[in-house]
Design a protein around this nucleic acid. Sequence first.
DNA 1: ACGCAGTGGAACGGTCGTAA
DNA 2: TTACGACCGTTCCACTGCGT
Length: 312
Amino acid sequence: TDPLVSHGRHFGRAIDAFCKPFPLIKEGVARARSSICSCDHKGGSLPSKREHRVFQELLKLSPGLDNRVLKASEQELHYIADMFRKGAAASRGDDTKSLKSVIIDWITPPGGSLVPPLSRNIKTDRGYYHYTTGRLLCPVVLDWEDEEVRKSLRSGEIVVSGNDWHSFLYVGYKLNPEKPWEGFLRSDLLLSAFKHVFTSPSSVERDVRATRSGNAELHGMQSVTVGSLAYIATMVVRFALSSNSVFTRNDKATASEIFYRDIVNFLEKETEKKEVEALLGWWNSFVYLLFSFSHQPLTTSQANFPSLSCRV
DNA sequence: ACGCAGTGGAACGGTCGTAA
DNA sequence: TTACGACCGTTCCACTGCGT
């Protein structure tokens, strides 16, 4: 298969999970072409800064792609975009599939069991219907111990959206109202899911049994990105923990895409810059430890890739 | 509002390469 | 030989747009 599909897999996981590749590429190419011929026309809608950056990141994933898209016909642009779309969809499918069952292990208390038990491959009794998944999904500003809260969440009387971040995003599942950044996006559950997807499923446990390179290594991932954090959070909250049996990007009950965008937008706010740098540094140091412990000797094909620990 | 067809996307069974 | 983990192919489902 076309290596673009593989690049698309990483694009979805680490850069932008939900964008439509064709408009992104087409508009990016149009901007590049117009600046090359120095026509300097300001036609069309002004792209957001982010949109332009995502386009640049996409080009970086595939060697020579920048020149290729500049010369490409409309038809070829469609083809390239379709390969990226396919890859992103495939990786999402694989991740939902594997996280769905393994998350049961992570939320089961060590040495204990879930009451009532949850099936590894059936999701209907997850979400707010189960005490454990409900506690993790409950907005951190609400008190899950309050029976009225539980009732309202189950009946849909309380609709969770926007910046009502879920408890599982926080260390200890608790918010410190004085310091809202404390423990935010640093929970064990997120860390496990991140390792599962980006280093290897077995790297979540102590003894790494991987026989192949993980996704981060395969794609030369240099550091934890905002996109990858949002992706992991979305996969966990909106799919693995929820009671929806189907992952949909814009259905009202899960609203995965909205959740993802909320996280990304928040982390890219100028006002949060300092905290976000600290957050990414924290993640990078964790992943660095993990990566160096699990490291297999590099093969020649892998030796060209920078190690995951390059930055921060 | 309804039926219809086309399309994209998610689930899942399976394959294949790798390393112990 | 076996376990592991990335990736692929098939099938099914939900959404969209169109005509009536």
